[in-house]
């Protein structure tokens, strides 16, 4: 084993191979965090819609969840990147392929975000549904509208309950961000592959990449556990699913 390979001058772009690792970490985090923002927002809206009564609201949300959950992420990645620009109007398609900055990166973010939204939606729905109906009735009885019940009663409770499953969804996005390498995003796994190709030090390079993934996972888990303890709802301990 020889980890000095990371301090050798890199093949291209100046710097050393360690710089490639850091650049990989940067892209992995950027993809994960931006995708998470989309997943959380879209997923919350869909999750709420799935708990509402009108079919016109519920059905599209259910359809969305089923479609995005039942197609492999890799296939969705290819559809965003390779198919979408070809079936939209030509001007827009050309923009998506050439003129927009960093098309691989943004496609990966959108794909991961909308894919994970379907999973977040399910967590949000189960969080809301785990709250006893009595709370909704109490809210309505004191004169809140349905929207206000969601805003002041169901969502604040629901989110706190589902912090653990949401954490694991974030970690899933973080790991899934490696699928972005299939459309050319040089995130951590892709960089590891590339360094191993240039240096033939596959074992050392994969070890470092794995350690980085584990450390970031650990850091997120610890941080989220602290958050969970701070916002815990008395009487609801550990009732949030997984």
């Amino acid at each position: 084993m020889d980890f000095s390979v990371f301090f050798q001058p890199a093949f291209s772009g100046g710097g050393i191979y360690l710089d490639w690792v850091f650049s990989g970490i940067k892209w992995t985090l950027l993809v994960s965090i931006l995708a998470w923002i989309i997943a959380f927002t879209v997923g919350s809206v869909l999750g709420v819609l799935r708990t509402t009564h009108p079919v016109a609201l519920r059905a599209p949300a259910t359809a969305y969840v089923e479609v995005f959950r039942n197609i492999p992420l890799l296939v969705q990645m290819f559809i965003w990147y390779f198919v979408l620009p070809e079936i939209v109007p030509e001007g827009l398609g050309n923009w998506m392929k050439g003129e927009m900055p960093m098309p691989e990166f943004w496609n990966a973010v959108l794909c991961l975000g909308f894919y994970t939204a379907s999973r977040v939606a399910e967590q949000v729905r189960s969080g809301i549904q785990s709250i006893p109906d009595g709370q909704t009735y109490a809210g309505l009885a004191v004169g809140l509208t349905r929207a206000q019940v969601y805003r002041h009663v169901l969502l604040p409770m629901g989110y706190r309950i589902i912090i653990p499953p949401l954490t694991s969804e974030f970690l899933t996005i973080f790991k899934n961000s490696s699928v972005a390498l299939t459309i050319g995003v040089l995130e951590l796994t892709a960089q590891a592959r590339q360094i191993s190709e240039y240096t033939f030090r596959t074992f050392e390079v994969f070890t470092v990449a794995t350690v980085v993934y584990v450390l970031i996972t650990l850091a997120v888990t610890v941080a989220m556990r602290a958050l969970e303890n701070r916002v815990r709802v008395p009487g609801y301990m550990g009732s949030g699913g997984k």
């Binding site: 790991k175 490696s178 590891a192 794995t210 993934y213 584990v214 650990l218």
Partner: peptide
Amino acid sequence: STPLILVIFWFYFL
């Protein structure tokens, strides 16, 4: 905590 793609690389190459 490791991405599946990295696991595939591990097993496939090493």
